[in-house]
Design a binder for these strands. Structure first.
Lengths: 339, 339
DNA sequence: TTGAAAGCGATACCAT
DNA sequence: ATGGTATCGCTTTCAA
């Protein structure tokens, strides 16, 4: 039961009769210490269980080895999965991850960014967020930022994006190819570039096939399960309605399906549905969502790599990685049959 | 486009012609500054957008305002929900949350604890983890810890627990009351106190009703969806099997059901299932799991409150909060019918 | 009430 | 290859 007191670098230096500078160099693998002295220091530090104080180290280095993640909703499995992969990748490089939950709210997002700055985080990964913040505010922070699925006008940032236009396009095309003529669209957050671009893809697909888009078939959403349920309730109250729907994400689609089952509405018999994300739950029997994969694993890894590269080589050129969306056909879509 | 330079407390002090100490006191609400001077300082700091460097502050205070959360799996919605509520509660008190993913692995868990210590986190909330670590190691860290759903022999810790014995008991009782005579149990991690106690509850219930427990009906699990699927595959390959199952968590139950649907095995007609957690997805039509609620919202809030109390009043007495499990009957259980 | 100065624990530059 | 020391930005004790 040896009381494990917290040693400081000064303790170690004194006990060994060397200077703190030497200890620091030895432990950090920096040059400037003789091999055997280095060995000795390392061994000794290990033995007494000395652990450097990250806070102090960070203060003198000016930054802490933590990467912040800011996204809309921890409870959305898509973000959980993304977090998982990013964490896994960053860990290899010795970084810890800190997550901030913006609740898709601009205010909260801004506050998180402030916190990140105060903590001197090494970098920030920003996901699809409600609105583009003032670009100056970000740039003024002078902290590396990687955007995921979010475009700014400015080019001077690293980003990894799904080709969202294409995602919207192939989702819609899939339905068109199945013979659907009237196709609705349930949005994500309207200020987000993801939603805007997917919507453009949807519009373009309709246009290509000379299909008209009805104003009332574009339904607002918020990417939450509950909203999906509500959308369904409203939807089936209508007299006239589309025979197919492109839904903003799997979570809403799940909520939508939940309502359908409640009302004993058969999917895909009465309505075809395509959504986005391909979360694990989407593949469960009973759902088997036809969905567009965002390639979450790749997305997470790429984001992490870009981040590390930016942090460690601040002068490297900015990269923009575009991921190809992938249609995963399962059981929520089928050929349109005239009724 | 005013370049938002980073000001330090010295800048502010100099610009105002006062000392740094005074600025510090004014901004921290500590006594020792005249009211109007305080006003003036606050206003000025606000105006130029001065933000104290948390790192420096933390270094001199000896701790940073971050609470660490260590749990087994970010991708388990139960933990996502817990994170959400804890974050929400801690935010009110001015703390930020940092999450560590142990992957239910002892090694990784220990490393996370080390990281937490190096970062001088204000406190640590530990969830159900694979194994009890050496109690000295924890105590030596000298950092406030709140245990959630995990008991140590030692009493000198705050904790919030579900009454897990009772949880196992009522889950089993529910099945017994439905007439089931042979009831199986799919474990969580065997080293975790949660699993052990629930298992005890299960055993006790059987015993009370003079039902015998078969060795082979106790099936190992790992709390992941995939494992649930595998368990089902193995289970239905058997000739003789229980008519009901208590499953370690909803995620495994979901995996189990997934397999059943695949094989067109009717639940609850052919088998009754009770699990634990009551995650949001458990309530979806198509699943409607009969499950034991862990009262995640309450659990998160209590944990956060205990944490803040401990951090801010280190001498307050240790508390142990026990939550009552609640049976939520839905569609995966029904009366046993002789076949 | 206010200011001066000593830490907090590490890093990094400048000597030797 | 080593040691001495200023520095990072803030808090806090001690004097005035």
């Amino acid at each position: 039961m040896k009381s494990k007191k917290k040693y400081t670098i000064t303790d170690v230096a004194d006990m060994l009769g060397v200077s703190r500078a030497t200890v620091s160099r030895a432990l950090n693998g920096t040059s400037g210490v003789g091999p055997e002295l280095r060995e000795k220091i390392i061994a000794f530090a290990e033995e007494i269980g000395y652990r450097p104080n990250t806070l102090a180290r960070s203060l003198s280095k000016g930054r802490v080895n933590i990467i912040g993640l800011i996204f809309g909703d921890v409870r959305n499995p898509f973000y959980s999965e993304l977090t998982f992969y990013i964490q896994k990748a960053l860990e290899r490089y010795g970084y810890t991850v800190m997550i901030f939950n913006s609740e898709y709210d601009r205010e909260r997002e801004a506050r998180s960014i402030e916190t990140a700055r105060e903590l001197c985080l090494a970098g920030l990964i920003l996901f699809t967020v409600v609105t583009n913040m003032e670009e100056e505010q970000l740039r003024a922070m002078n902290i590396p930022i990687v955007f995921v699925n979010r475009t700014l006008e400015l080019q001077n940032y690293d980003s990894v994006l799904l080709d969202n236009f294409r995602a919207g396009y192939i989702a819609t095309m899939h339905l068109i190819e199945l013979g659907h003529k009237r196709i609705g669209f349930v949005c994500g957050h309207q200020q987000s570039s993801v939603t805007v671009q997917r919507f453009e893809g949807y519009r373009q697909a309709l246009k290509t096939y000379y299909l008209t888009m009805q104003e009332e078939d574009v339904i607002p959403g918020d990417l939450k399960m509950k909203r999906g349920y509500e959308v369904a309730e409203e939807f089936f109250r209508r007299e006239e309605r589309p025979s197919a729907l492109v839904i903003g994400n799997d979570l809403m689609a799940l909520g939508f399906l939940d309502c359908c089952k409640e009302k004993e509405i058969e999917i895909p018999e009465e309505l075809s549905i395509v959504s986005f994300d391909n979360i694990d739950f989407a593949n469960l029997n009973g759902f088997k969502l036809t969905t567009i994969s965002q390639r979450v694993e790749e997305m997470g890894e790429k984001a992490a790599e870009l981040m590390v590269r930016r942090v460690e080589h601040p002068e490297s050129e900015y990269k923009r990685i575009i991921l190809e969306p992938q249609l995963v056909v399962r059981d929520t879509t089928r050929e349109y049959k005239e009724t």
